[in-house]
Computed example of a mutant assay.
Amino acid sequence: MQESAAGAPTAGAAAESAGTEEPPAEPATGYPATGRPAPAERATEEPGAGVLPPGPGRRRQRRVASALIAVLTVLLGFAIAVQVRSTGTGQTLEGAREEELVAILDGLDAQEARLRQQIADQRAALRELSDTDSRSAAALENAAERAEALAILNGTVAAEGPGLVMTIRDPEGQVRVADLLDAIQELRGAGAETLQIDGVRVGVSTAVTGVPGELRIDGRPVTDPYEVVVIGSPPDLQTAMGIPGGVVDRVGRQGGTVDIEQRDRVVVDALRPLDEPQYAQPQSDD
């Protein structure tokens, strides 16, 4: 059949064209035409396509999440166990008889009484320890006071307090050993707690020796005028020195004089070595 004037192809021309038609071009991506979609097409069709695999940070987050889930699971199980036990105990008490409930209450009361007794015992022990400490402190304080008093009486420590200063003048050199010994004894009898004569501390074992004008106290020489410093009640000490026939009278009859001055504070600072007993010792309890 011939093509019409309008240019329509004839049957032979159409067949020739069909026989010489070029095959379709392959995709530009370089992949062969296998009938499968190209990678670009699969990326739009397959789920998750184009997503990178999880890195170290993502794996660490997953491990932490798993650990938290495990801990929460354990805690939940523990809470459930406690709730079940509590529920079981309540159900047991609800189902118990009156005698059993009374026995339980008695046991609780007994336990409370034991605990209260233990608390009372502990408090009593604490009070006893406190009392013991107080008694020990009081005993130590008392011992310290006694030691201090003995040290003052023995003349091993300095002392101060009210008293008097007595000055014995002997221009004729007639004051005897007996006169100084009488003065010491009369002052002690009037309440003198400690004294010194010309810088020599008078103690329990003090000895006065020598002859008039050359007197010695514990081996140390003393000279006119003799200064006596005494701690005690000033009025009582002065009264003892002024009694008829006392020290003031005797010294006056020998040509000497005695001046007495009461003071609110005098210092006895002469010290003597501690006398250690050679034969005496504390009595044992045996």
Rank of each mutant, 00 (worst) to 15 (best):
A151N: 05
R272F: 04
E193G: 15
G57M: 08
A25M: 08
D224N: 13
R85Y: 12
L187R: 03
G252S: 13
A240E: 11
V71C: 06
E41D: 13
A65D: 02
E41Q: 14
P212G: 01
L150I: 02
T34C: 08
A159E: 10
V102R: 10
L101S: 11
Y226A: 07
N142Y: 02
E148K: 06
V211T: 13
P24C: 00
D286E: 12
R135G: 01
G30C: 05
P53S: 08
Q262M: 13
G245R: 05
G55C: 03
Q196Y: 01
A125R: 08
A270C: 06
D269R: 13
I260W: 07
L105N: 09
P225F: 04
A70E: 14
Q118I: 10
D106V: 10
E99V: 06
R63C: 03
G7C: 08
V74T: 15
S233W: 00
A113Y: 01
V266A: 08
G7R: 10
L195M: 15
Q61A: 14
E45M: 10
V267N: 09
R62T: 07
I260G: 07
A125E: 15
R201D: 04
Q83C: 10
A137C: 00
G77R: 06
T206W: 02
L164K: 02
G256L: 00
S233G: 10
A158I: 00
R216A: 09
D264P: 02
G210E: 12
V175L: 03
G246F: 05
L153S: 14
A15H: 03
E98R: 08
A70C: 02
Q196D: 13
G12E: 14
Q91V: 09
P225E: 09
T44C: 00
G30D: 02
G232P: 14
Q238C: 01
A6L: 09
V204R: 14
E26S: 13
E172D: 12
G107Y: 02
G213D: 03
A280F: 09
T89R: 01
P162A: 15
R216H: 12
G163F: 10
R169D: 08
L108V: 12
V251C: 07
E214M: 06
T29V: 04
D286S: 09
R220M: 12
L271M: 04
D249G: 03
E100G: 04
D286M: 05
A124C: 01
G12H: 07
R114C: 05
A8L: 11
I104H: 09
A143C: 02
D259S: 08
T34E: 12
Q262S: 15
L108N: 12
R127L: 05
A81I: 13
V229E: 02
G30K: 03
R201F: 06
V175S: 00
A15K: 01
E41C: 05
